[in-house]
């Protein structure tokens, strides 16, 4: 991809967004997802908070159909592909597929909070934390203190 545009979505509105880091000069776009906003009946508070976050990022702002807007933006800039950051929301995957039907999409992973050597059982937090906590604290010299129960842990 020689001339990408960046698709910025609502899970990565900060400077550590890997697409912003990797492509400092590329045009970037955020689209307010009209369908999502309407179906979820999102309040103005949420939209305002997002908007204020976006005003501190060098991105073009649009609203409407996300995939269509990203593709139009790519065409406006003569782009040969779209770079974005990984999203956890299943809707991200859906939109990515819609875009990828027309243009190559590269998805960059953000730096993980903790890297676990093997898959963990996620049925309860305690099982995850038993693996994750020593790794997190392992960056220092001493072992982590024992974990007290969270207020509403049973």
């Amino acid at each position: 991809m020689l001339r990408p545009v960046l698709w910025i979505h609502d899970e990565a509105l900060g400077p550590t967004n890997p697409s912003l880091v990797a492509h400092r000069e590329a045009p970037a776009l955020f689209v307010f997802d009209r369908e999502l906003i309407e179906t979820q009946r999102l309040s103005l508070k949420r939209l305002g908070f997002l908007y204020e976050s976006l005003l501190e990022l060098p991105v073009t702002l649009r609203h409407g159909d996300v995939a269509q807007e990203v593709l139009s933006f790519a065409s406006r800039h003569g782009a040969d592909g779209v770079v974005t950051s990984a999203g956890v929301d299943p809707r991200f995957g859906l939109l990515r597929e819609q875009i990828a039907a027309h243009l190559p999409v590269q998805v960059l992973e953000p730096e993980p909070f903790v890297v676990l050597p093997e898959p963990v059982d996620l049925r309860r937090f305690s099982r995850y934390w038993r693996r994750a906590e020593p790794v997190l604290w392992g960056r220092g010299s001493a072992a982590a203190p024992p974990a007290p129960a969270r207020l509403w842990d049973r």
């Binding site: 103005l44 939209l47 305002g48 908070f49 501190e56």
Partner: peptide
């Protein structure tokens, strides 16, 4: 100012209820 932003947001998203939060978004606030 924020009021002007809120007015624009109301035009863009007339279905979104309420007003702005006193908590401000953005990297500086964060």
């Amino acid at each position: 100012n924020r009021d002007e932003m809120a007015a624009i947001l109301r035009q863009l998203f007339p279905e979104a209820p309420g007003g702005l939060s006193p908590m401000q978004g953005g990297r500086r606030a964060a």
